[in-house]
Design a protein around this nucleic acid. Structure first.
Length: 305
DNA sequence: AAGACGAAAGTGGTTGA
DNA sequence: TCAACAACTTTCGTCTT
């Protein structure tokens, strides 16, 4: 039987998300993967004896991009048949082995190192496995296209992670990635853009709503305020206040306003720090929100009480 | 005294010629 | 390739609670 968990054991958050496609339950607050690889284990065939089993089973070990050779590696043999060969044939095998070694080591050695780094950063940021896998895939493609040349391995790793986060709608800010990887924020942004452009990865502009739960829990705001913030965001979107603006700034401002309305006041400074923007940006967005959405009265009333 | 507000100058990235 | 431009940041002074 499946046991349904309602709260995140790590942070107590209640924003658990079931992603059926990826087979995961993720806490949207802290990113903890509560349940993963929830694969449907049922078979579409049945086997009644070993003969049928041999015919119908058709899978080997799982393939993964987080292993440098995807867990599929083969080598040109070093033992066995090769020593039964004579002269020319034997030399041919030695040559093959040498070339395989030469070709593979350059890329693979890089991948080995990079994937280790990738794992480290991913676990530091508590990213779900699916994101790690995705970023490993992106990085592997980048290496194969020779996009890492001239760039530091770490920055490409960070860029790949950032891209994967965005794709899976568990956005992390550039600042967070910068802190986790020790790479300059600008550098990550640069490689991120470069890699996604070269690989033709299309990524939607990140949605401010995706940031809300995480910021809200970091600020210890209750669920009511949180949904209020989302509500405000939706209105903002209708009034076209969101286009062209930094998503974190908008998310931060809506949270700030929502907190005011619900009498859970946080200072602009606090919100700004969590969201990784400045007070000024929050103020600007905040001003726009008040103006366009006529929230002014609501706040005044609450303050009077 | 701390927080909120606003103005002005600076920064990095995008865009259009 | 370069300049104009929008968004955002930094800094600093003033006002409010």
């Amino acid at each position: 039987m499946v046991k349904y968990i309602k709260k995140c054991p790590e942070c107590g958050g209640i924003n658990l998300i079931l992603n059926k496609e990826k087979g995961e339950i993720i806490c949207k607050d802290c990113g903890l993967v509560i349940e993963e690889k929830m694969i449907d284990f049922s078979q579409e065939w049945r086997e009644f004896d070993s003969d049928q089993a041999a015919k119908r089973r058709r899978v080997g070990a799982p393939m993964t991009y987080t292993k440098y050779d995807r867990g599929l590696g083969t080598d040109v043999g070093q033992r066995g048949d090769i020593f039964q060969l004579k002269g020319k044939e034997r030399n041919k095998f030695f040559r093959l082995r040498k070339w395989q070694y030469r070709i593979s080591t350059a890329i693979e050695r890089n991948l080995k190192l990079a994937l280790a780094e990738l794992k480290r950063v991913a676990s530091y940021l508590k990213l779900p496995k699916s994101v790690e896998e995705e970023s490993a895939r992106i990085y592997t493609m980048a290496v194969q296209r020779g996009l890492v040349r001239g760039r530091s391995m770490e920055s490409v790793v960070a860029g790949a992670l950032y891209a994967a986060c965005r794709r899976h709608e568990v956005p992390r800010t550039l600042d967070e990635l910068s802190e986790a990887s020790g790479i300059d924020k600008k550098e990550i942004g640069r490689t991120y853009r470069f890699v996604t452009r070269e690989l033709g990865i299309r990524i939607l502009p990140s949605n401010p709503v995706d940031y809300i739960p995480r910021f809200a829990s970091a600020l210890k705001l209750n669920a009511e305020t949180q949904s209020k913030a989302v509500e405000i965001l939706e209105q903002a979107e209708e009034n076209e206040l969101t286009s062209g603006r930094g998503p974190t700034g908008i998310a931060a401002a809506s949270l700030y306003v929502a907190a005011l309305i619900n009498n859970e006041k946080r200072t602009q400074r606090e919100v700004a720090d969590i969201a990784g923007v400045t007070e000024v940006t929050i103020r600007n967005r905040y001003k726009e929100l008040l103006k366009k959405l006529n929230l002014k009265d609501k706040i005044k009333k609450k303050v009077k009480k």
